[in-house]
C-alpha cells in the first residue's frame, strides 16, 4: 500500500487564511452583536464597548433603528416576496423562450442566442445604474420609449412622465407594492431570464426526439407534449437553477441599492441594503452585527426550505 498523503497538509493554507479572515471575524461579530460597538470604539486606544446583552436584537425587532419608516418584519416580508416573485417569472419566461428557441427550423437561432446571453455577461452594477437613468421620469429611455409607442395611438407625450422610482403610493390598490418595485422587477426580469433559458435549453437538448415522435403517434397535442414530456424532463435541471436564482435574488444588493436605493420611504429595502446602511450611514457596528446574525438565520432557514423543496421534487415520478 502506497503511503497516503495527509489531507490536512492540503487543507492547512486554506484553513489558516480562512481562520484569520473569515472564521475569526465571524466569531468576533457574534461578540460585537452583544455590545454597543460604535464609532467611538474604533480608535486604536479606545475603551472597549459596553456589553448590552440582547438589547441590539430586541431593538432591531421593535424599533425603526433611527432609519425612519423601517420595520424588520416588513423588510423581511418584502425581501421574501421579492425573491419568489422574481424567480417564478424568470423560470416561466426562461422555459418559454427556451422552448421557442429550440423549435426545429427556426431562423437566426445563433444570432438570438448571442443576443440573449448579453444580460448575463454585463456586470450588474452597470445594469443597475443604466436602468436607474432609464427610469428617469423626464429624460429616461423607458418613458421616452413609452411616449413613442403612445404617440402611435395618439396619446400625448405629456402622459409619460411616470415617476418610476420616486412615486409614493401603490399603483394597484390593495397590493402594497410601489411603482419602484415594478421598476426593479422589470430590470431584474431583464437580468434574470437568460440564465434560466440557458439551463432550460441544455436540458431540452438532452430530450430525445423519439419521445415526441412517440407522442405524435399517440396523437398528443402540442400542449400535452409540453406538460407530459418537456416539463417533467427538464425539471431536474430547473429546480436547482431556480434554487440558485432564489438565493441570488434574495441577496441582490447591487440592483436595489443602485436602482431604487430602497425607496421610496424604504418600501423596497431588503435585508442587505439595511445592513449596509447600518454600517455605512448609521455607523452602529454592534447593531449591524446583530442584524447580520439575523440575516444568517434567515438565510439558513431559506437554505433548509429550498433543500426541502429540492428533495421533495427529486422523488417526482413520471
Amino acid at each position: 500500500m502506497r503511503k497516503k498523503i495527509n489531507p490536512y497538509l492540503y487543507l492547512i493554507p486554506a484553513l489558516l487564511v480562512m481562520g484569520v479572515i473569515t472564521f475569526y471575524p465571524m466569531g468576533f461579530q457574534l461578540w460585537m452583536s452583544f455590545t454597543n460597538y460604535g464609532i467611538r470604539n474604533l480608535r486604536f486606544d479606545a475603551p472597549p464597548p459596553d456589553w448590552v446583552g440582547l438589547a441590539n436584537y430586541v431593538r432591531i425587532l421593535t424599533t425603526n433603528l433611527g432609519l425612519g419608516n423601517f420595520s424588520f418584519w416588513r423588510v423581511l416580508g418584502f425581501n421574501l416576496f421579492w425573491a419568489f416573485s422574481n424567480v417564478i417569472i424568470h423560470v416561466t419566461l426562461g422555459i418559454m423562450i427556451a422552448v421557442v428557441l429550440n423549435t426545429a427550423g427556426l431562423w437566426f437561432k445563433r444570432i438570438y442566442r448571442v443576443i440573449y446571453i448579453l444580460p448575463i455577461v454585463i456586470p450588474q452594477i452597470i445594469v443597475a445604474n443604466v436602468f436607474r437613468n432609464m427610469f428617469d421620469p423626464d429624460w429616461g429611455a423607458i418613458n421616452q420609449g413609452l411616449a413613442l409607442i403612445g404617440s402611435l395611438f395618439g396619446l400625448s407625450p405629456d402622459l409619460f412622465h411616470i415617476r418610476w422610482i420616486a412615486q409614493l403610493g401603490y399603483p394597484i390598490s390593495g397590493i402594497p407594492l410601489t411603482l419602484s418595485y415594478f421598476a426593479l422587477l422589470i430590470t431584474n426580469i431583464w437580468l434574470g431570464w437568460p440564465f434560466m433559458t440557458i439551463v432550460a435549453t441544455g436540458a431540452l437538448q438532452s430530450i430525445p426526439h423519439e419521445l415526441y415522435g412517440a407522442a405524435d403517434i399517440d396523437g398528443a397535442s402540442g400542449l400535452q407534449k409540453f406538460w407530459r414530456i418537456t416539463l417533467p424532463l427538464i425539471r431536474p435541471a430547473m429546480v436547482p437553477a431556480a434554487v440558485y436564482g432564489l438565493v441570488v435574488t434574495f441577496n441582490l444588493f447591487t440592483l436595489i441599492y443602485f436602482l431604487s436605493g430602497g425607496g421610496p420611504l424604504r418600501e423596497t429595502e431588503i435585508l442587505l441594503t439595511v445592513a449596509f446602511r447600518l454600517v455605512n450611514e448609521q455607523r452602529l457596528y454592534g447593531l449591524a452585527a446583530a442584524f447580520s446574525v439575523y440575516i444568517f438565520f434567515v438565510l439558513l432557514g431559506l437554505t433548509l426550505l429550498t433543500n426541502y423543496i429540492t428533495r421533495a421534487t427529486e422523488s417526482y415520478e413520471i
Partner: peptide
C-alpha cells in the same frame, strides 16, 4: 464539519460580515 462550515460561510453574503471586518482591519 469542515465542509459544512465552508458552505455556511458561502451562504453568507459579504455585507453580512462587513461590521467585524471593518472594525478588525481598522485596528
Amino acid at each position: 464539519a469542515l465542509m459544512i462550515s465552508v458552505l455556511a460561510v458561502l451562504m453568507l453574503p459579504a455585507i453580512a460580515t462587513l461590521p467585524a471586518l471593518f472594525v478588525l482591519l481598522n485596528r
